[in-house]
C-alpha cells in the first residue's frame, strides 16, 4: 500500500538492511507504516477497563509488559501510558475505538504512526548485535517474548520489543529522524557476521 503511505523513513536504507542480513545468522528489515497510537489513561479508571473490553485485552499493567490481540500489540510505556501497534491503515479505527471507550473521562489518544518506524532484527545473532549498543540485559531469561523496554540503542532512544525468545526476534521502534542513523549503525555492527 505504498501509494497510501508514500515513503517510509527507511525506504532509502532497504538495501543497507538487506545487505547486512546473513542467512542463518541475522535478518534485518524495516516494518513500515504500522498504525501506532499513543494512549494515556489512569489504569485504575473505569475508562481503562472500558478500553480493555473494547480492544479485547486488558491494558498491561506491569512495566515492560506487552499484551496482544489478533490485531494489536499493546506496549506498556509508563504507569499510565501505552503504545498500541496495529496493521497498516488501522490508526483511525484504533483512535475511534479508544476515544469512544474513553468517553468523557480524562485521557489522551494521539496518532503517532509517523513518529517511529520499526526495524525487525531476527536470527541467532540478534541478541549479540543489539548488545553492541544496548546496555539492557537481553538474555532469554531477562528479556523474553512479549516484553518491551524503552532504552538506548547506540545513541538513539528506542522501544525494544522481544517478539520471540527461542528463535530470537526483536522489533526496534525508532524515531523517524533517527532511523537512518540507527540503520547505518546496525549495518556497521552487523558487518562482522558477513565475513
Amino acid at each position: 500500500m505504498a501509494e497510501l503511505h508514500g515513503e517510509s523513513p527507511l525506504a532509502a536504507r532497504t538495501e543497507t538492511l538487506a545487505d547486512s542480513s546473513v542467512p542463518g545468522a541475522l535478518q534485518l528489515s524495516e516494518v513500515a507504516f504500522t498504525a501506532q497510537v499513543a494512549l494515556r489513561v489512569d489504569p485504575k479508571s473505569p475508562a481503562a477497563e472500558r478500553i480493555g473490553t473494547a480492544v479485547g485485552t486488558m491494558l498491561p499493567n506491569q512495566p515492560g509488559q506487552v499484551a496482544r490481540t489478533e490485531q494489536l500489540q499493546i506496549l506498556w510505556m509508563g504507569p499510565d501510558e501505552w503504545l498500541l501497534v496495529g496493521p497498516e491503515g488501522s490508526a483511525e479505527r484504533i483512535q475511534a475505538t479508544l476515544t469512544e471507550a474513553l468517553g468523557e473521562e480524562h485521557g489522551s489518544v494521539v496518532d503517532v504512526s509517523g513518529n517511529r518506524t520499526i526495524v525487525e532484527v531476527t536470527g541467532p545473532k540478534s541478541r549479540e548485535l543489539l548488545a553492541k549498543g544496548c546496555a539492557l540485559d537481553l538474555h532469554r531469561r531477562s528479556f523474553a517474548s512479549d516484553q518491551c523496554a524503552q532504552t538506548l540503542l547506540a545513541r538513539a532512544g528506542v522501544v525494544l520489543l522481544c517478539r520471540d525468545t527461542e528463535r530470537p526476534s526483536f522489533w526496534i521502534f525508532v524515531r523517524a529522524s533517527f532511523a537512518r542513523y540507527l540503520a547505518d549503525w546496525l549495518a556497521d555492527a552487523a558487518a562482522e557476521y558477513r565475513v
Binding site: G78, A135, T151, L152
Partner: peptide, 11 residues
C-alpha cells in the same frame, strides 16, 4: 521505580 535498574546514561 517503574522500569527497574537501568544505566545512569538513561537518566
Amino acid at each position: 521505580p517503574w522500569c527497574g535498574p537501568r544505566n545512569e546514561t538513561e537518566f
